[in-house]
């Protein structure tokens, strides 16, 4: 038994069908006697560089436990799954109990987006004011 951390980047066009993917993936893992300890659905995120002409990706992080010999079978399945644009399995000594920084970031983003708009507006107002003061001088 090894402990794994898996990161999977899905095709962003299939973002709405993540539920289906999670079910399929869960089944695939169970068939290979893997168990999911934790799932973090991070959501769509800007990629640092384009992969297969995709500029965004749907990130999902899994904490897994399973047999190393079965991992190869899972990886070959993933290889021929076209909805996955990139994947990585890492062996870890211990699963971290805390949420990953990516997950907390994605959680915080939604309420912040409103604030960002407000900030932009206030900046524009300030710019207008500075322009006015310059004009007066």
């Amino acid at each position: 038994m090894n402990k794994y951390e898996a990161v999977i980047i899905l095709n962003p066009n299939l973002s709405t069908k993540v539920g289906d993917f999670l079910k399929d993936f869960d089944k695939l893992l169970k068939d290979n006697s893997f168990s999911i300890v934790k799932t973090e659905d991070i959501g769509r995120r800007q990629l640092a560089y384009s992969i297969n002409n995709h500029n965004k990706g749907h990130y999902i992080i899994f904490n897994l436990e399973g047999d190393p010999s079965k991992l190869l079978e899972i990886e070959t399945k993933i290889k021929y799954n076209e909805s996955i644009i990139r994947h990585l399995f890492l062996v870890v000594k211990e699963h971290s109990s805390e949420d990953s920084s990516l997950f907390t970031e994605s959680k915080n983003k939604k309420p912040e987006s409103i604030n960002e708009d407000v900030k932009v507006e206030s900046k524009e107002i300030k710019a207008d004011e500075s322009a006015k003061t310059k004009g007066e001088v």
Binding site: V7, I9, A48, Y49, G57, Y59, R86, L88
Partner: peptide, 11 residues
């Protein structure tokens, strides 16, 4: 290097 592979950081 791991972050680069996962497109979290640029190469």
């Amino acid at each position: 290097k791991i972050a680069r592979f996962l497109a979290l950081l640029p190469y």
